[in-house]
């Protein structure tokens, strides 16, 4: 690159953005630009300066015809896939009629394309929303799975009579002293009722979270704090008012002894 007056590529960034480098200089500069993010930022800023130079010109304004021309030109690019490329002999007798038909057809095609584009955008937006929801769900499940698979996590089944269902799976992460519960097949509740989880510590019930199952009897609650201090010997579920109770007000519905406690 010529120009011994300049020691660093940064010195040439302004000239490059202005288009003041000759071809060889510009090519050499672009090779540097491709691998230097800081230099690219400098050039971007100088391009902003160059763009602003346009505003210092006399207040010339285009006619309204230019806007119409630009508007008309863009959709034509969409319609250009139709086989119109071979120009025929323009003085053939049917040329005028054909042109008119073509113009009408293109107008209709443009309308159809516009409508299809709107539909495509709407569909895309809908799919993006769905995708975002699925991503969120997936992230949540991944977090749950990671929590369940963490070393030291123990699984307990809280059941009514020893039968598999209804039941609550309790995953106890002893290291973090937190738990995740997952209910299945539990009976539906009145609108003002909820299930409440209890940890039994020193023979006494310590209130924990409340939950309401979905219609299929399933529910999942994560990051439940397990009481610390004295050993927790069991976990139980009772039916309580919606906000939960400080002491159980109904018979135990589901229970499990927490072994090794």
């Amino acid at each position: 690159m010529s120009g011994a007056e300049f020691g660093t590529p940064q010195d040439l960034a302004a000239a490059y953005a202005l288009g003041a480098l000759d071809d060889a200089e510009a090519k050499a500069f672009e090779a540097l630009l491709a691998r230097d993010a800081e230099l690219a930022r400098e050039v971007a800023e100088y391009r902003e300066v160059a763009a602003l130079l346009a505003l210092a010109q006399p207040a010339a304004a285009p006619t309204s015809a230019l806007r119409a021309r630009v508007l008309a030109a863009a959709p034509q690019r969409q319609a250009s896939v139709i086989p119109l490329r071979k120009p025929g002999p323009i003085w053939m007798p049917w040329a005028l009629a054909a042109s008119l038909l073509l113009a009408a057809w293109m107008g209709a095609a443009r309308g159809r394309l516009g409508l299809r584009l709107e539909q495509a955008y709407a569909e895309l937006a809908q799919r993006n929303t769905l995708l975002a929801q699925r991503d969120t769900l997936l992230e949540s499940r991944e977090r749950t799975l990671s929590a369940l698979l963490a070393p030291g996590v123990e699984l307990y089944q809280l059941t009514a009579t020893g039968d598999p269902a209804p039941g609550v799976q309790l995953f106890w992460d002893r290291k973090r002293n937190t738990a995740i519960i997952h209910s299945f097949g539990v009976k539906a509740l009145a609108a003002d009722r909820a299930y409440q989880l209890w940890f039994i510590q020193d023979g006494k019930p310590v209130p924990s979270i409340t939950f309401r199952p979905e219609a299929d009897g399933r529910a999942q609650v994560e990051a439940i704090a397990v009481p610390s201090g004295a050993a927790v010997t069991a976990a139980a579920v009772t039916e309580e008012p919606l906000g939960g109770s400080p002491q159980p007000t109904s018979a135990i519905y589901l229970v499990a002894k927490l072994s090794g406690a």
């Binding site: 346009a54 505003l55 584009l117 955008y121």
Partner: peptide, 24 residues
């Protein structure tokens, strides 16, 4: 992509500036 409203908006935002440069 041929969205006419977007074409119009791009023109309205930048057409004057592009014209000023071209005209100069």
């Amino acid at each position: 992509l041929g969205d006419e409203r977007a074409v119009g908006t791009v023109y309205d935002r930048f057409g004057q500036m592009m014209y000023a440069v071209a005209y100069r």
